[in-house]
Simulated assay, not measured.
Amino acid sequence: MNYLAHIYFSGTNRKVAVGNFIGDFVKGKSYEKYPSSFQKGILLHRKIDHFTDTHPIFLETVDLLRPSFGRYSGIMADMYYDYLLASDFEQYSNGVSLSKFSTNFYLSALLYYRWLPKKVKGFIFHFIRTNRLKEYSTFEGLQYSLKIMSIYNSPAINPTLGIEVLASNEVQLRSLFDEFMKEAQQKFPH
């Protein structure tokens, strides 16, 4: 799962949501230097990652994507799952709009800016200004996120191919995602 899903499973506690958001950037036991609510979010991030990375439906999604993306199939599955959540957000959020949810999180990130790791501080204003969480809900927004990833993380990620594969497999991916989310919501009630 990517940023949106991690924040979604954090519930309403702002510090837990920020902790969950920064989870990938806090390694090993360094989470212990954070206040308890942030620690809870960081550890929740790790639990969500473990649940997702070992879940049969997610693994089936990764296998579906492997012919197109090889070793990057897991990353693409994470990105697709955020798109699928964002594009049907109100179904999963008891009617809360993605716009309201996103704005609330951006406020949380700014309120607790001092707790963000240096790498996150380096991109958070761009993340907010470009409304990344809301933009996950469109092909264009997802393609932009994939482009950023291809520049800063892995040139092997092809944003155009990413959208082509999503468009041609969206029905099957959405079916897998809906099934996955039923179990994830039970495991991580928010």
Rank of each mutant, 00 (worst) to 15 (best):
N2K: 04
N2A: 08
L4P: 07
H6V: 13
H6L: 10
T12K: 13
R14Y: 01
V16N: 02
N20H: 06
N20W: 04
E32F: 03
K33L: 00
Y34T: 03
Y34D: 08
P35G: 00
S36A: 11
S36R: 09
F38E: 02
K40C: 02
G41Y: 01
G41L: 05
R46H: 04
R46Q: 06
R46L: 08
I48L: 06
H50Q: 11
D53S: 11
D53C: 11
F58G: 06
F58D: 00
F58W: 08
F58S: 05
V62L: 08
S68M: 01
G70S: 13
G70K: 14
R71C: 09
R71A: 14
Y72E: 04
Y72G: 04
I75N: 03
M79Y: 03
Y81A: 02
D82E: 00
Y83H: 15
L85K: 05
S87R: 15
Q91K: 12
Y92N: 07
Y92K: 06
Y92V: 00
Y92Q: 07
S93L: 03
N94K: 15
V96D: 14
S99P: 13
S99V: 15
K100H: 15
T103Y: 06
S108G: 01
S108R: 03
L110S: 14
L111Y: 11
L111K: 14
W115M: 00
L116H: 08
L116F: 12
P117Y: 05
K121N: 08
I124Q: 09
F125A: 10
H126S: 15
T130L: 14
K134L: 13
G141A: 06
Q143P: 06
S145N: 11
S145I: 13
L146C: 02
K147P: 04
M149Y: 13
S150R: 03
Y152S: 10
Y152P: 04
S154P: 02
A156P: 00
A156D: 11
N158S: 06
N158T: 05
T160I: 15
T160Q: 13
V165C: 03
N169G: 04
Q172F: 12
L173Y: 00
R174P: 07
R174M: 15
S175F: 10
F177N: 05
M181P: 04
M181E: 01
A184H: 00
Q185D: 15
Q186S: 14
